[in-house]
């Protein structure tokens, strides 16, 4: 039986298997068709229906279940929904167990939430450091702003204020008002 206690392990393994079987298009298709439109359809329906309130309900529940020690912070401000992930339960599982088959596991989050947000009328500003830390800001597609200055939305909980956010040699993957997992921006200087 395929279990749920080690889900992130076989999920990450699956990305690499799909890439060998059908190249990157099959991986993208998987994130959208299987995860966004099937597995996570409850998130999709909630956010399409309720917008920011739906995001708060979905991630409030999901992150609490996956990360009961609160390795994350959610901030709701007018016009923006922000997540600061200080200790990603999913990437943390992979790092603790030495599992790495796919080139960037973190891409799967944009892979399924990107299409979901686009169809609900939102865009995403995001960075991840490949070490289980990332941040997300969701805004209405027509809204101005994005990549708010560190601390300006989530205060001291902003993951970018951590001393280990960008250690020497770390590469930040960055998205600016984006919903496509393949459209990363050049790293900020």
């Amino acid at each position: 039986m395929i279990g749920c206690h080690d889900f992130c392990g076989h999920y990450e393994w699956t990305f690499a298997w799909l890439e060998r079987a059908g190249g990157h298009p099959l991986v993208r298709d998987y994130w959208d068709a299987a995860i966004n439109r099937d597995s996570q359809r409850h998130a999709r329906e909630l956010i399409e229906r309720e917008g920011f309130a739906g995001m708060e309900k979905y991630w409030g529940h999901t992150l609490l279940e996956e990360s009961p020690d609160l390795g994350f912070n959610i901030t709701t401000s007018p016009g923006v929904f922000r997540i600061d992930m200080h200790d990603c339960p999913s990437k943390g599982f992979l790092r603790r167990n030495g599992l790495e088959q796919y080139r960037d596991y973190c891409d799967h989050c944009m892979g399924w939430t990107g299409p979901m947000m686009r169809e609900a009328g939102f865009v995403i500003d995001h960075e991840h450091n490949h070490r289980g830390q990332c941040w997300w800001e969701m805004r209405r597609a027509a809204e101005k702003g994005g990549h708010a200055a560190p601390g300006s939305v989530s205060g001291a909980k902003d993951v970018r204020l951590r001393p280990d956010w960008r250690p020497p040699g770390a590469v930040l993957d960055r998205y600016v008002k984006q919903t496509d997992p393949d459209r990363k921006s050049p790293p900020a200087s």
Partner: peptide
Amino acid sequence: PYTDTKPQGSADFYYATNATFRF
């Protein structure tokens, strides 16, 4: 072989396994 800090997994991940099979 692969363990987590939580004693049990999140059951909603079964949704993803079922969706993976369908895909």
